[in-house]
Simulated scan of single mutants.
Amino acid sequence: MNSHFTAIPVIDISGLSGNAGQKQTVVENLGHAARTIGFMYITGHGMEPSLFANMLRETKTFFDLPIEEKMSLYIGKSSNHRGYVPQGEEVFSGGSKDLKEAFDLSLDLPSDDPDYIAGNPLIGPNQWPAIPQFREIITDYYNAVFNVGRQLMSAFAVALGLSADAFEASLTKPPSQLRLIHYPYDPTAHDVAGIGAHTDFECFTLLRATAPGLEVMNGQGEWIDAPPIENAFIVNIGDMLELLSGGEFIATSHRVRKVKEERYSFPLFFSLDYDVRVQPLPGRENPALPTQSLVAGEHLFAQTAQIFTYLKQRLADGTLVLPESSLALSSFGQESRHPNS
């Protein structure tokens, strides 16, 4: 269970490319962190530091554009939730608007992809700004982080007693989103929540950030700092792995407090394919979980639609209807059990 932790473990995953004993050690370390905390730092991932440096440079170039140019790529203009997210667009379950801007993208599929043509709300092409090399550099980073995610998904499978390739057939074109997030300098900031407390909706998240601000809720409902570590990812378990494991892995609630300094944050939300049914593995059924079954993409989109203003407007006017199985925000994780923290 989620313990009274005061720090987040650092796990070197380079052993996943080593011999059987080295792999087993990494798997055990990842599994322990997933079961007891739901958060971990990972090092030894093998990504060249230049990938992050180049992506950060291009991100700064984009957010330095005039607001009119950024709004030409407004996410509400897309049919598959891709593009620019202005300040105030997102409202989490706490009701406060987030003081940040973002650019959201995912696997860049062609406009003739059959699922996109059929109206899938999360699959298809990205919107791209007219910045030389932006698309190429961001795509290189996306592909590299996604490959690290594949390694982790395989390791988590083994930690759950499955084969290493147990989830490979469910990773053909997942709606795994990368967000480029910018928190502007805010000299009036007080030490209060920025992003409202929430769990992530997918299997897990791989995060790089340029400054502190992220906080994680422990089993006592207390908030623990999770500052960035050089060339390390912060990884946290999401709703889908909590459900698959029957609650054995923990989707730990987290938030971003308001900080004065300018901050960039880059989460890659690692998901299974849109139509994959997620339910507890045999023998791990758990009636305490908020649901016993969900469709990966439907859950992801239903949670997203309850956060983004443009989607909530479509819900209000009836042009968008959520699946009957949709859950309320913050149904998973510690925050659902400590709602007043």
Score class of each variant (00 low, 15 high):
residue 276 V to R: 14
residue 172 T to I: 14
residue 135 R to F: 04
residue 186 D to E: 15
residue 325 S to E: 14
residue 91 V to A: 05
residue 55 M to N: 12
residue 246 G to W: 06
residue 265 S to M: 05
residue 58 E to I: 01
residue 82 R to N: 07
residue 231 N to W: 02
residue 46 G to H: 09
residue 6 T to P: 01
residue 168 E to P: 00
residue 126 N to I: 12
residue 194 G to W: 08
residue 180 L to Y: 02
residue 317 D to A: 05
residue 83 G to K: 04
residue 199 T to A: 10
residue 234 I to E: 00
residue 16 L to D: 01
residue 290 P to N: 10
residue 103 F to L: 04
residue 237 I to T: 04
residue 126 N to S: 07
residue 225 D to Q: 11
residue 5 F to A: 11
residue 281 L to Y: 11
residue 114 P to L: 12
residue 35 R to T: 11
residue 245 S to R: 08
residue 292 Q to W: 02
residue 274 Y to I: 03
residue 12 D to Y: 04
residue 47 M to Q: 15
residue 327 L to H: 07
residue 121 P to V: 08
residue 179 R to T: 12
residue 199 T to F: 03
residue 123 I to W: 00
residue 201 F to G: 05
residue 108 D to G: 08
residue 128 W to R: 09
residue 13 I to Q: 00
residue 33 A to R: 00
residue 196 G to D: 07
residue 50 S to V: 15
residue 69 E to Q: 15
residue 301 F to G: 00
residue 109 L to K: 14
residue 296 A to E: 08
residue 115 D to V: 00
residue 117 I to C: 05
residue 333 G to F: 13
residue 78 S to K: 09
residue 271 S to K: 07
residue 332 F to Y: 15
residue 258 K to Y: 02
residue 122 L to H: 05
residue 38 G to Q: 03
residue 68 E to A: 15
residue 242 E to H: 09
residue 51 L to G: 10
residue 166 A to I: 02
residue 259 V to L: 15
residue 62 F to V: 06
residue 260 K to S: 09
residue 41 Y to S: 10
residue 239 D to L: 10
residue 156 F to V: 01
residue 202 E to Y: 01
residue 159 A to L: 02
residue 279 Q to E: 15
residue 252 T to M: 02
residue 285 E to I: 07
residue 164 A to Y: 08
residue 76 G to R: 05
residue 241 L to C: 14
residue 114 P to N: 10
residue 80 N to L: 07
residue 340 N to P: 00
residue 213 G to K: 10
residue 195 I to G: 02
residue 309 T to M: 05
residue 270 F to S: 00
residue 233 F to S: 04
residue 73 L to V: 09
residue 65 L to H: 08
residue 297 G to M: 03
residue 40 M to F: 15
residue 299 H to M: 13
residue 326 S to R: 13
residue 34 A to N: 01
residue 110 P to Q: 11
residue 259 V to H: 01
residue 79 S to H: 09
residue 302 A to C: 11
residue 184 P to C: 13
residue 191 D to F: 06
residue 137 I to D: 01
residue 216 V to P: 02
residue 79 S to D: 11
residue 96 S to L: 11
residue 275 D to F: 04
residue 181 I to H: 08
residue 41 Y to I: 14
residue 192 V to N: 07
residue 142 Y to P: 04
residue 232 A to S: 13
residue 192 V to G: 02
residue 333 G to R: 05
residue 235 V to R: 00
residue 132 P to V: 09
residue 53 A to V: 09
residue 102 A to H: 03
residue 316 A to D: 12
residue 274 Y to N: 04
residue 182 H to C: 12
residue 215 E to D: 11
residue 16 L to I: 04
residue 332 F to C: 02
residue 44 G to E: 06
residue 72 S to E: 15
residue 288 A to F: 03
residue 191 D to M: 09
residue 158 V to C: 12
residue 267 P to G: 07
